[in-house]
C-alpha cells in the first residue's frame, strides 16, 4: 500500500510538469481557437535564452527578467506579423501559421545560441525527501509548487480581471467582442505573452530535468494526451489531465510493466488519450468538440 502511494504521488507530481506545458496551449486555444504548434518552440527558446545568459555570467534573476521581456517582445511581434494579418481567417490557416512560426523560432534560437546541449542547474537538489513514509523527489515537489503558484496566478488573472472576461468574450465571438470595445489585438498580445511566460517556467523546469537541447521542444508531445483528456479550453482540465497522465503512466509502468514488458510509460498516455477520444471527445472539462486539423 505504501509503495502504491509512493508511486501514485510521484506520478501525480510528474504529471504537473505535463500540465505546465499543456496550460500554454490552453491559453492560446482559448483566445484564438487555434492549436499553437509553436508552443514547444517557445518552451525551448525561453529555456535556451535563459541558460545562455546564465552561462555568460548574467545573474539568475536578471536572466529571468531579460528572458521574460524577450518572450513579451516575441508575443508582440507574433501579434503584429502573424496574427493581425490573419484576422477572420479559418483556424486551419492560423494553425499552419503557427507551424511555420515554430520553425522560425527554433531557427532563430539556433542561430543566436547554437545547437549544443546546455546543462541547467536551478539549485534544487534531486535528492529524495521522506514525507510520511514516502520517498519523494525534492525537484518534483518544487516543480509541483511552482505549477500551483502559476495556476493560482493565472486563475486570478483570468477569472477576476477584465482581461479574463475579455478573453472569454474574444474566444466566444470576435465580432461581438469588437462591438463592446474590446481590443482584440491587445488581448491576443497579452495571451501570447502569458503563454510565453508559462513556456519560460516550463522550459526552466524541463530544461533542468532533461538538459536544454533541441529535443526539449518535443515535451509538447507529452502535452497532447493531457489536452485530449482535460479539454483544450480549461486550465483546470489541463491540471487534472496532467495528474491523470502522470499517475496512470507511472502506475502502469510499475504494475503492468512486469506483465507486458517495460517502456509502457512512453506509449500508455496515448492509448489513454485515444480511449478518451472515443468516450468523450471534448475532454473532461472541454466546452465543445475541437476542430480537428
Amino acid at each position: 500500500m505504501e509503495f502504491f502511494l509512493e508511486v501514485l504521488t510521484g506520478g501525480l507530481l510528474a504529471g504537473l510538469m505535463y500540465s505546465l506545458v499543456a496550460i500554454g496551449f490552453v491559453l492560446i486555444y482559448k483566445a484564438s481557437g487555434v492549436f499553437n504548434f509553436a508552443q514547444g518552440s517557445m518552451v525551448l527558446f525561453s529555456a535556451l535564452t535563459f541558460v545562455s545568459l546564465l552561462e555568460r555570467g548574467v545573474p539568475f534573476w536578471v536572466s529571468f527578467a531579460v528572458t521574460l521581456l524577450t518572450m513579451i517582445a516575441l508575443a508582440w511581434a507574433i501579434e503584429r506579423v502573424v496574427l493581425r494579418p490573419l484576422v477572420n481567417r479559418p483556424p486551419i490557416t492560423l494553425f499552419m501559421a503557427t507551424l511555420g512560426l515554430s520553425y522560425i523560432i527554433e531557427g532563430v534560437a539556433q542561430a543566436m545560441w547554437g545547437a549544443q546541449v546546455h546543462g541547467l542547474e536551478l539549485g534544487i537538489s534531486d535528492a529524495p525527501l521522506e514525507i510520511g513514509g514516502m520517498l519523494l523527489s525534492q525537484f518534483d515537489l518544487f516543480s509541483a509548487a511552482t505549477a500551483g503558484i502559476l495556476v493560482l496566478f493565472l486563475s486570478l488573472l483570468f477569472n477576476k480581471t477584465r482581461i479574463g472576461i475579455s478573453l472569454r468574450a474574444v474566444a466566444d465571438d470576435q465580432l461581438a467582442a469588437l462591438a463592446v470595445g474590446i481590443k482584440l489585438q491587445r488581448i491576443w498580445m497579452i495571451v501570447w505573452a502569458v503563454a510565453g511566460f508559462v513556456g519560460l517556467v516550463a522550459g526552466l523546469l524541463w530544461g533542468a530535468r532533461l538538459g536544454v537541447q533541441f529535443s526539449l521542444s518535443l515535451v509538447v508531445l507529452k502535452a497532447l494526451p493531457v489536452l485530449i483528456i482535460g479539454g483544450f479550453t480549461s486550465i483546470g482540465g489541463a491540471i487534472v489531465g496532467g495528474l491523470i497522465i502522470g499517475a496512470s503512466e507511472k502506475l502502469a509502468e510499475v504494475y503492468l510493466g512486469p506483465i507486458i514488458g517495460g517502456g509502457i510509460e512512453n506509449w500508455f498516455p496515448y492509448v489513454l488519450a485515444l480511449l478518451f477520444l472515443l468516450v468523450r471527445p471534448a475532454g473532461i472539462f472541454g466546452e465543445r468538440a475541437i476542430e480537428r486539423v
Binding site: 472576461i165 472569454r168 468574450a169 466566444d172 465571438d173 461581438a176 467582442a177 463592446v180
Partner: peptide, 17 residues
C-alpha cells in the same frame, strides 16, 4: 453576436467593459 457560452449577466457585464 452574443457570447453564447456565458451567462446573461456576464454578457451584459461585457457591455460595461
Amino acid at each position: 453576436a452574443l457570447f453564447k457560452g456565458m451567462s446573461v449577466l456576464d454578457n451584459v457585464l461585457t457591455g460595461r467593459n
